[in-house]
Simulated scan of single mutants.
Amino acid sequence: MKIKEALKLNDPILITFIGGGGKTTTLFRLGEELSAEEQPILLTTTTSILMPPPSAYDLAIVTEDVAEAIRQVRNNENKGRILLGKNITTENKLKGFLPEEMDRIYKENRERWFLVEGDGSNGRSLKIPEDHEPQVPSFSSITVILIGADILGKEINKENVHRHHLIQPLTQRTQQYVDKSLIFDLISHPLGITKGIPEDSKKVILFNKISTQGKESLEILRGLSEEMINEGKDAPIHPQCRISSILLGEVQDKEPIIEIVGEDRWSALF
């Protein structure tokens, strides 16, 4: 199924993508789905992203002034896909507005979908947030936490896990490899990968890269997803860690979502 269907999207809201394992790809894929239905969208970040090709947007608004950003977005209602940022760095990265600034821009443009990348992972499939991370606007109705399925079995080091040095202090684990129990601990810890998300934001995990890892990974992550959802419902865990639903998918596939575990679950499509 499409990402839009999996997230049960109807009216325009602000959605933030954090974690690792395909945030930017997922953001622009959802943007394509909404754009195909001729819905107005704004593509942006509260950190920085590699400047996308011109074919990915209809208009780029680059300004460091919040009021000017609000004005330009409102004055371009006829543009379906707007890319917004503060400036473009010498590394060709688009730097975004701070979460509180993004809230101001969104409040004046609620008729448009806001798709926001709120985290950086240096291309890694698993990201452990530092104190100042992630950067999620308070108006984020849905926050999607990405984890790459290819991280299973990988060694815990800087090549595979962004901010890998934070795992041991967080979980008290000294293991060398990523397994499903470690991912469970990182999701369920209040300072883990669900931290920094507004209390009233719906939290959705997306395990990406499922198809390329095969049925074994699907079974492992399906089991982990069941455990995570049941733990959230049946045991007293920190409210910050409760997950609404978990998506299993391959964002670059024609039908990017394979299965949903959680509220109003769908049948497996794999």
Rank of each mutant, 00 (worst) to 15 (best):
K8G: 11
K8I: 04
L9I: 07
I13G: 01
I18F: 02
I18A: 03
G20F: 03
G21L: 04
G22H: 09
K23W: 09
T24L: 11
T26C: 09
L30E: 00
L34T: 03
A36W: 08
E38C: 10
Q39I: 10
P40D: 04
L42K: 02
L42F: 04
L43T: 02
L43V: 01
T46A: 10
T46W: 03
T47I: 13
I49M: 14
P54E: 03
A56I: 00
V62K: 12
T63V: 14
V73L: 08
E77M: 06
E77W: 07
L83D: 11
L83P: 07
G85E: 03
G85Y: 04
G96V: 02
G96Y: 07
G96M: 05
L98I: 04
L98K: 15
E100H: 14
E101G: 08
D103T: 11
I105Y: 00
K107Y: 12
R110V: 09
R112P: 06
F114C: 08
V116F: 02
E117F: 05
G118N: 01
S121L: 05
H132Q: 13
E133I: 06
E133W: 06
P134R: 03
P134C: 10
Q135E: 12
S138T: 13
S141A: 15
I142E: 04
A149C: 04
D150W: 00
N157I: 12
V161F: 01
R163A: 10
H165Y: 14
P169I: 08
L170T: 05
T171A: 09
Q172K: 15
R173G: 07
T174C: 12
T174E: 14
F184H: 14
L186Y: 06
I187M: 10
S188I: 13
S188F: 13
S188L: 15
H189C: 11
P190N: 04
L191D: 15
I193E: 08
K195M: 10
E199L: 11
K202C: 02
K203S: 02
I205R: 00
N208P: 04
N208V: 10
L221K: 08
L221A: 02
R222I: 03
L224Y: 09
S225N: 05
S225D: 03
E226P: 00
I229N: 06
I229A: 06
K233H: 12
A235T: 15
A235N: 13
Q240H: 09
Q240R: 10
I243D: 02
S244A: 12
S244Y: 15
S244K: 11
I246G: 00
L247C: 09
L248S: 02
G249P: 06
E250V: 01
E250C: 09
P256T: 13
I257L: 05
I257F: 06
I258S: 10
E259D: 15
G262K: 08
E263P: 00
D264Y: 10
S267A: 13
A268Y: 11
